[in-house]
Every structure is written in C-alpha cells, then in structure tokens.
Design a protein around this nucleic acid. Structure first.
Length: 338
DNA sequence: CACCAGGGATTCATCCGGTG
DNA sequence: CACCGGATGAATCCCTGGTG
C-alpha cells in the first residue's frame, strides 16, 4: 500500500499524467477541458491524493518554503509573530521552517545551512545584530532576506520594526506625567539595532520632557533577558544612583526588575515604577500587571511575510521597510513617585 | 570508479480530430 | 486547408544507491 501519485490519479480518471497535473493546478486548470478537470479532481479526491512537493520541486526548482530564524521559540514574544507570518505564507501556498539559534552564532550558521540545503526561497530573520557577518555573506550570495525587529549596520535590507522612538517617547511621557523626574533606562544589548535606537530615543525623550539626561541612569544589559535585566538593575541600585522609575529595553528586562524588587524588599509601583516594551503575552497576569509599550506582533509577522514574498516575486525591487506604530498599555506597574 | 536507473511532477513541443 | 482547443510524449529537474 503506497501513497497515491499523480500517475494513479491520471489512470483512474482515464487521462494522461500531464493532463492530470494541469487539472490539479489552479493556474493551469483553464488549459484543461472543464469536464475532464472535474473527472481528475474527483479521482484525486477519491484516492486521497496529495501532491508530492519534493517531486514537484525537482522540476520547478522551487520549494514553496521559507526559513524563519528566531532566537528562541519559548520566548512568548515570537508565537504571535510566527502566526502572522504563517497566515500570509499559507495563503500564498508557502510554508515556513522554523529554527532556533539560542543567540549562538555557531548554531545559527548550522541552522541556516540546513535551511538552505532544503532550498528555502528566502529567510525571515529575527536574530540580526548590528555587526552580523553571516547575514552580510548571505546577502552577498543573493539569499533573499527580511529582517524582523532588528537591522544590520550598513546593510540595506527589507525590514519590519516597531517605531522605537515613538514607543519610548510614550513611555517617558507617561512617567513624566505621573511626576517622575529621575528615570532610569535598562538598555538592551548595544550590539542590536533595537538596543541602540531605544537608548537613543530614551535620551531624546528625556530632553523633550525637559528632564535631565543623566548618563549614570542608563545601564546596558548583555542580553534581552530577565536575568540580565535583574543584574543591570542590581548594578544600578548598588551604584547609589537615585531614581523612581525605570524604562526597560523590553518586557523580559522589566520582569527581571520584579525579581530584584522582591530581593530588596521594594514594592512596585510604590517604590519604583517600571515600563516594559513589546507587550508580550501574559503581562496582564503579572504582579503587578506590567505597563508596557505594545507593538503589533501579528502585524509584524504579516508584513515580514509580505516583504519576503515581494522580494521573491520581484527580486530587483528596491528593499522596502515597514515601521509600525506602537501604543502604550498602562497597567499597575506605574504610579506617581512616593 | 564511472555510469545509470529511478523517484514524481512539470512543461515544451507536438499531435489529433473537428470546424469554418 | 488553416486553425484551434485540448490532450499527450518525452525530456527534464537533482541526487543516491546499486551495478558493471
């Protein structure tokens, strides 16, 4: 008992395999007599025929598959983005292979290699660093790339990002309106474009609010993680700096702060207000629920997939980038200073 | 070691019968 | 006879495992 092939369908419908192929393909179906096409479809249906994409790509040299390179799928930020990507891809007849890099360049290289060997038609990459030799090389080799959330210095690639300037400005304005004047920033890693742009936006936002920009109140995290966020906040507190609110580089960094509050007997928001960034799932279930800058995850995925499909269909098109508007979600982690 | 067959689907080139 | 819609023949894609 083997799985049915096109030959079986053709035989059952009493036509040539070439005819069956055309009948089964919506684009080529008009070439086939309507009655014949109906017969073929019925035959295919009756034996449970599924086209074999491996055989198909043998001839077409296309895989209808794209690679999705993310740091770690267990980070709740990614599932909604992946969902948006997948919804667009499937309607276009494409599928996604997902790989996790764990932010390890070696692993990333191997995973990308494996994707390329499977003939993916392009890559959506959410792991870009400002200096990223692998992406540089892939671009030079003509691999179609779309970046999500991040950019690479000196490399003009299609990308989808949230408007960091606007998002951070909202966070700072919110804290300022509550009466905070000494606000700290736990910046994301400065090897990532997002870490840099949010830190820069933070300084601008302070000035816009007429607040002093004290460089000692900005601390960099080595990774976008709770542990690094916690570590950064400990350093800041231990330095003796005075502040009443924190703008975190992202939500994970903000959640890391919660651990430090517990360690040090501080309460949020009474002793310290915190704003995150990203609006990853479940923040409303935290104690206290985290105020954050929401970015449209699903839309980000949708746009990323569209950009990639665009470059596949129109390889010579000038790289287009999409900037999506964030919004502030006020919850209970922010309050006026004591 | 070189060579070939075979896997499944697609597609260019060709053929067929019917019509004006 | 030319033309047309519709169906088909056969080559082809790339790689691997087996054969001589």
């Amino acid at each position: 008992m083997t799985t049915p092939t096109l030959r079986d369908v053709a035989q059952l419908a009493g036509v040539h395999p070439a005819t069956a192929s055309r009948a089964l393909n919506p684009q080529t179906r008009p070439l086939v007599n309507a009655e014949t096409a109906r017969k073929v479809l019925r035959a295919a249906e009756s034996i449970g025929y599924q086209p074999n994409p491996i055989a198909r790509s043998l001839k077409t040299a296309r895989s209808a598959t794209v690679g999705l390179v993310i740091p770690d799928l267990t980070n709740p930020l990614f599932p909604p983005i992946v969902r948006g990507i997948e919804d667009v891809l499937t309607t276009a007849g494409y599928n996604a292979w997902i790989v996790n890099t764990d932010n390890d360049p070696g692993r990333e290289e191997r995973q990308v290699e494996s994707l390329r060997s499977r003939q993916v038609e392009g890559l959506i990459v959410a792991t870009a660093r400002r200096d990223h030799p692998l992406l540089l090389r892939l671009h030079r080799q003509g691999v179609r790339l779309v970046l999500v959330n991040r950019r690479v210095d000196g490399l003009e690639l299609p990308s989808v990002t949230a408007d960091d300037d606007a998002g951070i400005a909202m966070a700072v304005a919110h804290l300022a309106s509550l009466g905070h004047t000494k606000i700290a920033h736990l910046a994301g890693p400065q090897q990532t474009s997002t870490g840099v742009s949010r830190a820069r936006a933070f300084r601008h936002a302070l000035l816009d609010q007429g607040l002093a920009d004290d460089p000692r109140l900005t601390v960099e995290c080595g990774y976008w993680s709770e542990a690094e966020g916690a570590q950064a906040l400990r350093r800041l507190l231990d330095s003796g700096a005075e502040f009443t609110a924190i703008v975190a580089g992202n939500d994970l960094i903000a959640l890391g702060c919660y651990d430090v509050f517990a360690e040090r007997g501080m309460t949020c928001p009474d002793d310290m207000s915190v704003v995150g960034f990203n609006e990853m799932p479940f923040l409303d279930k935290m104690r206290p629920p985290l105020t954050t800058v929401a970015i449209p995850h699903y839309e980000i995925g949708v746009e990323a997939a569209r950009l990639l499909l665009d470059t596949i269909e129109e390889p010579d098109r000038h790289p287009r980038s999409v900037l999506l508007a964030p919004s502030l979600v006020v919850r209970a982690s922010t309050a006026p200073p004591r």
